[in-house]
């Protein structure tokens, strides 16, 4: 910010100020994306370790109004012609994946998930490999009650309907009984409280 002219902010000074503003905001909020830097960031809207099961959530079970439907003993996950209880889901082959919830709002936090591969379920239900599928939530209203999964994502071995997080059963806020978790998807499309998977 050289002010040799002494008549207010020069063009270079203005550009420097804008650059400095971007730098300050980056440092003040980067902790919500890069966990180890969270102490540097007094203005991070999330902290990667704060939340149920040490992972942040944007929408709680209460906020989605699924407290009853998610723990209802008559709950069944419907995939095509299959209808599976929580016990049925637990008895299927389980797989693990380390994947982040990467929110479009900016925060990002990694979870250790385990559950059923989506492709295993689609195979059992006889859904073809080239189909898009739609994952539907128990949540009744909201912008993201369903999400669509491309054939590539649906068949990826890392794409799970997760039942567990960090070795524990999924907390209600994280989508109990099961939630979608896949690589390379924004957090809002990792549908929680899944009740149905439909081939499109």
């Amino acid at each position: 910010m050289s002010e040799a002219a002494g008549r207010g902010l020069s063009r270079r000074g203005f550009l420097n100020a804008v650059g400095a503003a971007a730098g300050v905001i980056t440092v003040a909020t980067i902790g919500e994306t890069v966990g180890p830097l969270s102490r540097l960031s007094p203005l991070a809207p999330r902290r990667a370790s704060v939340g149920p099961q040490h992972l942040p959530v944007n929408k709680s079970g209460a906020g989605a109004r699924v407290e009853q439907s998610a723990v209802d003993p008559t709950y069944r996950l419907v995939v095509g012609s299959l209808s599976l209880s929580v016990g049925d889901l637990q008895s299927l082959p389980q797989h693990a994946a380390i994947l982040p919830i990467a929110c479009v709002e900016g925060w990002s936090a990694v979870g250790h998930w385990s559950g059923i591969r989506l492709r295993d379920l689609l195979d059992r239900a006889g859904i073809d490999h080239d189909r898009w599928v739609r994952v539907e939530s128990l949540e009744r209203s909201g912008l993201y009650v369903t999400s669509e999964v491309s054939p590539t994502h649906a068949r990826d071995p890392l794409t799970l309907l997760a039942l567990r997080l960090g070795g524990e059963p999924l907390a209600l806020d994280h989508g109990y009984p099961c939630r979608l978790i896949g690589p390379n998807r924004p957090g809002v499309l990792q549908t929680k409280w899944v009740r149905r998977v439909v081939a499109l």
Binding site: A21, V24, I25, T29, L43, P45, L55, N58, A62, G63
Partner: peptide, 29 residues
């Protein structure tokens, strides 16, 4: 200029916009 940008980002958080009693992970600081 820098303060204005910082306020634009930080003031809504300081005012607690979006806080929910059932969700402790929103604005934990």
């Amino acid at each position: 200029i820098i303060s204005g940008v910082v306020l634009l980002v930080g003031l809504p958080m300081a005012r607690g916009y979006g806080l929910r009693s059932d969700n402790p992970s929103i604005l934990p600081l």
